[in-house]
Design a protein around this nucleic acid. Structure first.
Length: 248
DNA sequence: CGTTCGATTTGCT
DNA sequence: GCAAATCGAACGC
């Protein structure tokens, strides 16, 4: 029997997407189904989407539509979208209200409900590293779809993020606290259309993990807008009032 | 191993 | 009408 989930608090999310993308590695994404089934994995790969100026972000130019609305919500909200007509991707919204920035969760190492994940993923998943090694794979494995778009990860019973150190967590095979030196920092995957933003170093993954997706190549180009992080930081501060490094 | 291509629906031009 | 923050099958070497 899984323990009751222990959601990360609001202030975990009240930061910029680069900070949150790194902070999420080693945390657990926990999905609780209606029947009580728990499906969970340790996050091993993330990407930051920097909002208005980021040509790879759905919220580029401040584009605010039915689809992107959740990106404008408060930190700790989910943003789940459908792409290619059949796949879902799960994001964690951060920043402040009306600051449309988020982190895409790209890969997990399964820690609970692996058998159920194999059933949900179907015959293409032949081994554990096939279950959640991609943003759409992990959504299929954890039964995440657009019904979970815009929900509050701090208060919704269906999905949350758990930090390490949960009492009684005997199944954690994951990684606990992560040093930045254990992370690789690479271009984002599948955003070649984003011109000068395509090569920006906005993807992170746990080097030692066998559960990551896509290329491990680390050649990047600098952020095309030098002050974009400053502008996000100011917006977070003025919008949410809680920003900065967390030192647990 | 590698590359290519189709699936299938939505969101927005 | 077109391209998409993807995946997996099919094929070539």
């Amino acid at each position: 029997m899984p323990l009751k989930p222990n959601p990360a608090p609001r202030d975990f999310y009240e930061t910029d997407p680069v900070t949150l993308a790194k902070r999420l590695i080693g945390a657990r994404l926990v999905r609780t189904l209606e029947d009580g089934t728990c499906l969970a994995g340790t996050i091993v790969e993330t990407e930051a989407y920097l909002g208005v100026e980021d040509k790879a972000a759905h919220s580029v130019g401040g584009r605010r539509t039915a689809r992107t609305e959740a990106m404008f919500a408060r930190a700790g909200t989910s943003y789940v979208f459908m792409t290619y007509g059949m796949h879902h991707c799960f994001n964690v919204v951060c920043g402040g209200v009306d600051v449309p920035v988020a982190v895409l969760v790209r890969a997990l190492e399964p820690v609970e409900g692996e058998e159920e994940m194999f059933v949900r993923r179907g015959p293409a998943a032949r081994k554990a590293t096939d279950l959640c090694s991609g943003p759409a794979k992990l959504c299929q494995a954890l039964a995440i779809d657009r019904r979970l778009n815009g929900v509050d990860l701090v208060g919704d019973p269906g999905v949350c993020i758990e930090l390490g150190g949960q009492v009684g967590d005997g199944v954690l095979r994951g990684v606990g606290r992560i040093a930045e030196s254990e992370l690789a920092n690479t271009p984002r995957i599948g955003v070649d259309y984003a011109q000068e933003w395509a090569a920006a170093p906005l993807r992170w993954f746990l080097r030692k993990s066998q559960h990551v997706s896509g290329s491990r190549a680390e050649e990047t180009r600098p952020l095309p807008v030098a002050k974009v992080m400053d502008s996000i930081g100011r917006a977070v501060v003025s919008g949410a009032g809680a920003m900065g490094e967390r030192t647990p």
